[in-house]
């Protein structure tokens, strides 16, 4: 799947700092192959502080973008935290899945759940 985005739209994507694509001949649009995404799922075992810390580390997000993702996953049950090709998404997903439990909460026994989707 090829997704054409303007530079402004690209800058609003989580994880956009990790990936840019080739410019078209016109130079006004950047054509980027974003074939996959990493989706994070909500649970009752991780605090907002954990989610922000984890996303800034695993997805290289800004603290503000990480908080918006934390808010979305809390409100809706899921949020997209990264776009990229499959290998990049797999790497990010593995980091999330192995980040570990939240030391702030005694009921937290494991990492959050995430998966790569197309």
């Amino acid at each position: 799947m090829v997704l054409e985005l303007s530079a402004q739209e690209m800058s609003t994507l989580p994880g956009s700092g990790a990936r840019t694509g080739e410019s078209t001949e016109s130079g006004t649009l950047t054509e980027v192959r974003l074939s996959s995404k990493v989706v994070l799922f909500d649970d009752e075992e991780h605090s907002y502080d954990y989610v922000v810390e984890m996303l800034t580390h695993c997805c290289e997000m800004s603290r503000e973008a990480a908080f918006r993702c934390a808010f979305e996953v809390d409100m809706t049950g899921r949020t997209i935290v990264f776009h990229g090709d499959f290998d990049e998404c797999k790497t990010v997903c593995d980091k999330i899945l192995t980040y570990g439990p939240d030391h702030r909460l005694p009921q937290s026994m494991s990492s959050m759940n995430a998966e790569v989707q197309h």
Partner: peptide, 21 residues
């Protein structure tokens, strides 16, 4: 709204050092 809510929800630096779970 998000800036305000994040200030309410996230642990602030001056309280993190004192927070002992």
């Amino acid at each position: 709204f998000f800036k305000r809510y994040s200030n309410l929800v996230l642990a602030q630096e001056d309280t993190t050092a004192n927070f002992n779970p």
